[in-house]
Amino acid sequence: MHHNKHIQKMQPRIKPKPSNLQNTKYRTSIGDRFQNYLGLHAHALFSSLGRLLKTPFTSMITIIVLAITISLATGFYVLLINVEQFSDKLESSHYISLFLKHDINDADGLKLAEQIQKSAAVKTVKLVTKTTALEEFKHFSGIGESLNILDKNPLPTVIQVLPTNIFEDSVEVQQLIDALGRLDEVELVQMDMRWVQRLQSIVDLAKRGVFLLSIVLSLAVLFIMGNTIRLELENRRDEVLIAKLVGATYAFIQRPFLYTGFWFGGFAGLSAWIIVSLILLGLQEPIEHLSLLYDGKFTVLFLSVSESLILLFVASILGVTGAWIVLHYQLRQMTLE
């Protein structure tokens, strides 16, 4: 709006002699202007893509450098969500194990289990009777046959208790453990809390590490992009200067370069996605083989659709931003000599 006012000011105050060089006959409506404006954007969008494809080799190098940088951050992120999943899957180690006294039979054990289940601090309860425990032991220990020589089942009844707030409230969990330990039927309470908590804090630490690393890598993307645009600007110096001289605004001059940043960022994001997915595909088989050796609960997590879209979005935005920063400083310094 400012500009229109300004243009009016620029109109000569004295009516000029009629001439075919004066612009009076043709006026453009606001609708037309908007359409022309969209046209300019569309043109910038596709011409910048065209330029990118015109020099496929140099474009490719830049895109690969950007893609590797982005895939580092993305790769660490994927690693993290997989480790997190792993720690969630290790639910069995979140259980408090209650080893009952020898004289407690399976029926009494069941009663006790039902009683414990009622507590608000308890999420689920699993009863492992003497019989099942023996069978499992036979099955997994590999010394099943030799156990037959025992005339009495030496294993105790075990109740496994999963606390409600295992990570959120360690005081409550500790209280639960103490309370369970005071029960008459209980011989021994065991929980490898510390291992779980350690894993959790390692994951938390890694999360922060990945976050900070992502910031550094984003900065790298901005600088790589900025440098690419700086070179591009230098290559097209004449064009920029001539456009400036015939009345182009900074917005007009910047537009194709910003779209160049958009394309570079977008392609780099897409390539990073491909790199990360290929690495995961390569790891999938050995990981799942390894997982089989444990409980077989672990499957490799890939980037979800929304995560992939966010990756593309962030990469494009980084491209545009990197371009913009350089343009903001460089364009104003470009003069004819």
């Binding site: 037309d32 359409q35 022309n36």
Partner: peptide
């Protein structure tokens, strides 16, 4: 170029 910069339409 100057016309495109000033935002004129294709026909014009």
């Amino acid at each position: 170029l100057p016309l495109i910069i000033s935002g004129y339409g294709n026909q014009e």
